[in-house]
């Protein structure tokens, strides 16, 4: 269909308006989109673990399919710690059980207590 002068002007005007809108607000929208993308990926990362490599205690990849280090036990510190903050998790009280504060004569009148954790005692 052949455009009339009026319609061409109108179309150009619309295009200019669109460019102007993008120029004016586009960067902002991109930031908003990036934010939502980040949220989405964060939520996705919080779900079940995607496939991952097992790693030995010294960080080498265990690959039973190729046979690399395939007879070695994996290390959770190296394997899970690749994505998750292992050191922080280790401080969880189920793991630490007061061990960070353990010391001889922890309780003066009960010297056999070395920590408040359930790691022996009466």
């Amino acid at each position: 269909m052949r455009l009339t002068l009026h319609s061409r002007k109108d179309a150009m005007q619309k295009l200019k308006s669109s460019v102007e809108i993008f120029r004016r607000y586009g960067i902002g929208w991109l930031w908003v989109a990036a934010f939502f993308l980040l949220c989405f990926t964060s939520v996705a990362a919080a779900g079940p673990c995607p496939p991952f490599y097992l790693k030995t205690d010294d960080g080498k990849i265990i690959n039973p399919m190729s046979g690399d280090n395939a007879d070695q036990p994996y290390s959770t510190r190296q394997t899970c710690g690749s994505c998750h903050p292992y050191e922080k998790i280790r401080e969880g009280y189920h793991f630490d059980m007061g061990w960070k504060d353990a010391r001889d004569n922890f309780i003066k009148d009960k010297p056999w207590f070395l920590t408040l954790g359930m790691t022996g005692g009466f």
Partner: peptide, 12 residues
């Protein structure tokens, strides 16, 4: 009170 065992001190 958690156990009937006693953990060794670091230095004994």
């Amino acid at each position: 009170m958690a156990s009937y065992r006693q953990l060794a001190k670091k230095n004994f």
